[in-house]
Amino acid sequence: MCDNSRSVSDRLKELFADETDAITAGKLHMTQGNLNKIKNGRQALTVDNLRLISETYHVSADWILGLKEGRAINDIDLDRLDYSQVFVLIDKLYENKTIEPASLTETIKTSDSYDEVDSEEALDDSQQISTVGIDYDLIRINDPALSFMLRRRVKLIAVDLDIFNDWKEKHLKDYKGIPLLLCDEEMRDYLLNHCSGKTEGDLIETLKNYINLLSKK
Rank of each mutant, 00 (worst) to 15 (best):
M149T: 02
M149G: 00
M149S: 03
M149V: 06
M149K: 02
M149C: 04
L150Q: 06
L150F: 13
L150K: 05
L150E: 04
R151F: 11
R151K: 15
R152E: 12
R152Q: 12
R152P: 02
R152F: 04
R153H: 14
R153G: 07
R153Q: 14
R153P: 07
R153D: 10
V154Y: 13
V154P: 03
V154Q: 14
V154R: 13
V154L: 13
V154F: 12
V154E: 15
K155R: 11
K155E: 13
K155L: 09
L156V: 06
L156D: 08
I157N: 09
I157L: 15
I157T: 11
A158P: 07
A158Q: 15
A158N: 15
A158H: 15
V159A: 13
V159Q: 12
D160K: 15
L161R: 13
L161N: 10
L161P: 02
D162R: 08
D162Y: 06
I163G: 03
I163S: 14
I163Y: 09
I163M: 11
I163V: 14
I163C: 08
F164E: 13
F164Y: 15
F164G: 11
F164K: 14
F164A: 14
F164C: 12
N165E: 09
N165S: 08
N165R: 12
N165F: 09
D166L: 11
D166C: 11
D166V: 04
D166T: 15
D166F: 09
W167F: 15
W167G: 06
W167K: 05
W167R: 04
W167M: 09
K168A: 08
K168L: 14
K168P: 02
K168C: 15
K168F: 04
E169C: 03
E169K: 11
E169Q: 13
E169A: 14
K170G: 01
H171L: 07
H171D: 11
H171I: 05
H171F: 12
L172S: 02
L172N: 01
L172T: 03
L172V: 00
L172Y: 01
K173E: 02
K173W: 02
K173S: 08
K173V: 08
D174T: 03
D174N: 05
D174V: 01
Y175H: 00
K176A: 02
K176L: 04
K176Y: 04
G177T: 05
I178M: 01
I178G: 00
I178A: 00
I178P: 00
I178S: 00
P179W: 10
L180W: 04
L180K: 04
L180Y: 05
L180P: 04
L181V: 10
L181F: 06
L182F: 06
L182V: 08
L182N: 09
C183F: 01
C183D: 02
C183R: 02
C183H: 01
C183E: 01
D184E: 05
D184T: 07
D184C: 04
D184Q: 05
D184W: 04
